[in-house]
């Protein structure tokens, strides 16, 4: 595909997702305020299938994946009031919930489930109006940053966020020193921050 066409396609996809995020935000708000079950079932249809793919990418069987989806979506219902639109997209929030659920399963006997730990640690920092506006555009900017970084940097991010691999395992898989894996992550982050902080 010519670069321009793939660029346009990417842009379209991220615009779609931005629209989707606006819808999802409205649904979450409705769930939080009115315990709206209709809104929940719409949100379920919107996000559960992706969440299932996500769990399967992380090594869950289809049955396990559905168990986790169920648990994650119920957390979305019970925690809807905690969703803070200024912190990021609904998908980002759902990602965090799903990830923490998985960790808590692994650490069953831990004295303090991570999900609680994170709830505690998330005081929202005060934002001005401009900043809030900027944050609504963020998912588009993240998508852009991810297409702009070198593929070797995107790869280590994919292996972390999607394949669930610790840095050491990534290093082993790619045959790289640990330090290289870390520096790729750092470089990717620097680019992301630049993109997020530069006005469009």
């Amino acid at each position: 595909m010519p670069a321009l066409a793939s660029d346009m396609l990417n842009k379209e996809k991220s615009l779609d997702r931005q629209r989707e995020d606006q819808i999802a935000r409205r649904l979450i708000l409705n769930i939080a305020k009115n315990l709206d079950k209709q809104a929940f079932s719409t949100l379920f249809d919107l996000q559960a299938p992706r969440l299932k793919s996500f769990m399967m990418r992380r090594g869950a069987s289809p049955e396990q994946a559905e168990d986790l989806v169920q648990e994650a979506m119920i957390s979305v219902w019970t925690k809807a009031g905690l969703y803070n639109p200024d912190k990021g997209s609904v998908l980002t929030w759902v990602f965090t919930i799903a990830k923490n659920l998985r960790i808590d399963r692994i650490r069953k006997e831990a004295s303090m489930p991570l999900t609680e730990l994170i709830d505690y640690d998330a005081p929202s920092d005060e934002l001005g109006n401009d900043e809030m506006l900027m944050r609504r555009q963020e998912s588009q900017q993240v998508a852009r940053a991810l297409t702009e970084i070198p593929s070797e940097q995107k790869q280590v991010l994919m292996l972390s966020f999607v394949e669930d691999m610790p840095q050491m395992e990534i290093a082993r898989r790619l045959g790289l020193p640990l330090g290289t894996v870390k520096s790729r992550m750092r470089l990717a982050y620097i680019r992301l921050r630049k993109t997020l902080e530069s006005p469009n």
């Binding site: 997702r17 989707e20 992706r50 969440l51 996500f54 990021g88 997209s89 998908l91 980002t92 929030w93 759902v94 990602f95 965090t96 799903a98 990830k99 963020e138 998912s139 993240v142 998508a143 991810l146 991010l157 994919m158 966020f161 999607v162 992301l192 997020l196």
Partner: peptide, 9 residues
Amino acid sequence: ALIGGEFLG
């Protein structure tokens, strides 16, 4: 964390 949301999307 936005990266995670983006990959999920």
